[in-house]
Design a protein around this nucleic acid. Structure first.
Lengths: 233, 233
DNA sequence: TTCCTTCGTCACATAACCGTAACGCCACTG
DNA sequence: CAGTGGCGTTACGGTTATGTGACGAAGGAA
């Protein structure tokens, strides 16, 4: 996982929850705890965790009910869930997998194994979060995947357009001259007409503004171009 | 291990064994039957099942003895075992878990529930049994068995295609250049034309997309290829 | 041996992309 | 308000990257 993934632990036994939190934090996760099912549902709305560790026996709203509700909701259908069951609750375990948990652990579990499962589930569930990304306004440029999206929608950029946008996003707000853009996007010692940049900027704009998006590129007359989401500021 | 997992039923009551066999076959498993403990041990050697459904009361060699022996052997230490006990044999049940059964069912059981447990045990046990598994979308690549399946269906990949897919699946979503693919799939210091990668990608695609599957490989013009199940996301 | 699979490469077709020229509008200057 | 340089936009020819079918070589299995 590239950054710090958020994990919510829904567990009513404070001691267990704390141990788990400690272990997961040590592994680099951002951890919070909900002591019952109702609170878990609340915190899911609030914190938007990337993964839920869900104890099966919870006060207020049972784990299985939490799971069922999440799977029915539009927003959290895909929230990865690792459930915890005590030995002897085999029936619930089976129901849990049926209800849509991604994995389960039987208590008592080894912290290492639980961590491994969490990592595996996260990896499986969030392939998009791999690699370095540049962000500007609602634009996201993923270097590793070589993908650009705006407001969640993937855009198709030609290679040159991609490199120009990358150059601009690496220097947000700064005005780049045409020659600078050529150096950054084509490489130094490449002879390209300045006006060619204009054409690519135009193409880039038309892709970025497809739909009813506003044009994030500002023309600075006599100098060049810059990224500027809010020209009035 | 193919996607058609082999299950051995060790059960001395023919009627029960047959019913069970019928149900498991309907669920897509490859099923065989052993009427007593001695035969069970023999068939395990012979058939190499992926999971054992083990009745506790068996002629010749008792279920508990079978279990104990398997757990002591080097080859079958991790063979998943689901044991069947008659009601009232609580002591044996507990001994069974101690001896190393992975799960148990009390007779009479519902076929659906047993199936659910078998599925769960297999899913949990397989990674340990078969080595690491890579998953992406509905693709599963089993390193140890060198097998690939899509949506449950086994695919036949040539060795080079397998290694390329492995390289891609180890870095899901990330774009790999042709040279990187060569290094990863052929090894460093191997001279291969870049275009050769294209041809293998084409062959890989045609296998992965057989039927009406969508092509999971994205071409990134000017750079290389990446795994991308959902280009619009 | 012969048959079959896999491999690397090539050759050709196609589609995507690129750079440039040309035209006309617009913003600024005076 | 006229003039001018800068810029947006379109069109187009050429180039390059990729898809695809074919082929011969190598190796293994029967």
């Amino acid at each position: 996982m590239s950054d710090q993934a958020k994990i919510l632990i829904a567990e009513d036994e404070p001691a267990q929850a704390e141990v788990l939190k400690y272990n997961l934090q040590a592994a680099g996760y951002d951890v919070s705890i909900a002591p019952d099912g109702a609170e878990a549902l609340m915190r899911i709305e609030e914190d938007r965790p990337d993964l839920l560790v869900l104890d099966w026996m919870l006060p207020e709203v049972s784990g299985i009910e939490v799971c069922r509700r999440l799977r029915k909701s539009d927003d959290y259908r895909d929230l990865p869930i690792v459930m915890l069951t005590a030995r002897g609750e085999e029936d619930d375990r089976i129901r849990g997998l049926d209800v849509g948990a991604d994995d389960y652990m039987v208590k008592p579990y080894s912290p290492g194994e639980l961590l491994a499962r969490i990592n595996a589930v996260l990896r499986r569930a969030r392939p998009a979060l791999t690699g370095e990304t540049l962000e500007y306004d609602d634009l996201i440029l993923n270097l590793a995947a070589r993908k650009v999206s705006r407001a969640g929608q993937t855009l198709h950029l030609a290679p040159t357009e991609f490199r120009i946008l990358q150059a601009l996003m690496e220097r947000p707000g700064r005005v780049l001259s045409r020659q600078q853009i050529i150096d950054l996007a084509w490489g130094p010692n490449v002879f390209i007409e300045d006006r060619t940049v204009d054409v690519h900027i135009k193409r880039l704009r038309s892709v970025l503004s497809k739909g009813d998006f506003t044009d994030p590129i500002r023309t600075v007359r006599g100098f060049g171009y810059s990224l500027d989401a809010d020209p009035d500021a």
